[in-house]
Amino acid sequence: MKTKFLLLPILSFVTLLFISCSNDDDPITISEYTDATTFFNELNYSGSVLISKNGNDILRTGFGIANKTTVDPNAISTQFRIGSVSKTLTGMGIVQLKRDGLINSYDQPLSDFDDSFPHGNQITLRHLLSHQSGLPDYVPMVEPNAKSGQSFTPETILEIVKNQVSENGLNFEPGSSVAYSNTNFLILALLIEELSGNSYENYITENVLEPLNMTETEMGNDEISGENYAQGYNGNENVSEYPMQIAFGAGCWTSSVTDLEKWCRAAMGDNWFSPDEKQAIFGEDVPEETTAFELAWFRSKIDGKTFLWHGGDIDGFASLIGFVPESNSVLITLSNEQDDSGTTRNAIIETIVKNEL
């Protein structure tokens, strides 16, 4: 699972290309835009793509190969690891806890639920949901050893984080800055289990997947097998094997374009979220060509359009889901090619939102 880190004053906004982008990577350049199919072909894209506007499909197809051994092609029904797009499902779990009366407010401090958490009286659920907690990212602490065979449960990872914060403090005062940290959503997933008395997987399944008939979405396994699943690649190397338990709550789900369309349309529509919930989750308008962290979603303004979205990276996979409410548009891309710098996803966002949505 890729680690992304960003630190800046909370009152400033993030330019669109902040996700996974480094100063050493040049943006992707293509010929003059003609149509979506040509664009993805020029990217040599490998994955599944859905672009829809006002209920009409612009593109709904697969590109490239799902499995280079069997040479099975990617298709709309192919299932991919979705990495941090999983955070939108975890965020929905917290919304459901509030609906169930198991939390009172997104501004409740973490100490209400774990009085032993260091600085827990300063960190609220809102801070966790919007990456304003100041908590360090656990991934670099555990991923190398996990890939070498050491076992880590989510509870073990939580204790590692608590020890780290006890010894070194927070990276910044909660609410004063933003920094993308997978730790926030691992804690939220554990909170779902603690408060609901159910497993995180079952709670999300019962409260999100089943109501939306998302039958192609499930927790990912360490090894990928089956003809309906894409293998993940970094160049020509199959890098699919991954210790998925360390991605708990932050990047642990597998899904398809078809299922994620259902999730996007529910989030965009008028029946799934109440007006007050939408206001809390998706936030206020942002200036042109900027992006803000909201509650488990990003909000961007691109060419005058509001784009609500999330991206995800995990070894061998790169994902993007998003929608433009004003035009009833949905954009979903699931790739089984690693996108370390995020330049491919950034090119997709800028090009497709401007030209098609």
Rank of each mutant, 00 (worst) to 15 (best):
K4L: 07
L6H: 10
F13W: 04
L17G: 13
S22L: 02
S22N: 10
S22T: 03
D25Q: 13
I30P: 04
E32Q: 13
E32W: 05
T34G: 09
T34C: 10
D35E: 11
T37D: 06
S46V: 13
G47A: 11
I51Q: 01
S52N: 14
N54L: 07
G55S: 11
D57A: 09
D57H: 08
I58M: 05
I58Y: 09
R60L: 00
G62F: 06
G62M: 02
F63D: 06
F63L: 04
I65Q: 13
A66D: 01
D72F: 11
P73M: 12
N74L: 07
N74G: 06
I76C: 06
S77A: 09
S77R: 09
T78G: 14
T78N: 14
F80Q: 09
S84K: 15
S86A: 09
K87N: 14
G93E: 05
V95P: 11
K98C: 04
K98H: 07
S105W: 10
P109S: 13
S111V: 15
F113G: 10
Q122S: 11
Q122K: 14
I123Q: 12
T124M: 12
L125F: 05
R126H: 15
R126I: 04
L129W: 05
S130H: 11
S133F: 10
P144W: 05
N145R: 15
S148Q: 10
G149E: 07
S151H: 14
T153P: 02
E159R: 13
V161L: 06
V165W: 00
G169C: 01
N171P: 00
N171D: 07
S176W: 00
V178I: 02
V178Y: 12
L190I: 05
S199D: 03
E201P: 00
E206Y: 05
E206V: 03
L209M: 14
E210F: 07
L212H: 12
T215I: 09
M219I: 03
M219L: 13
G220T: 05
S225D: 08
N228Y: 08
Y229W: 09
G232C: 00
G235Q: 11
E237L: 10
E237R: 11
M244F: 12
T254G: 07
S255L: 04
V257C: 08
V257Q: 08
D259E: 00
D259T: 01
K278D: 10
Q279A: 15
G283N: 04
G283I: 07
E289I: 02
T290W: 11
A292F: 00
E294R: 15
E294N: 13
A296I: 01
A296R: 05
F298C: 01
F298N: 06
R299L: 02
T306F: 01
D313R: 10
D315Y: 01
F317K: 04
A318D: 04
S319K: 06
I321G: 00
E326Q: 12
N328G: 02
N328M: 05
D339G: 02
D340M: 00
T344E: 11
T344V: 04
R345P: 00
R345V: 00
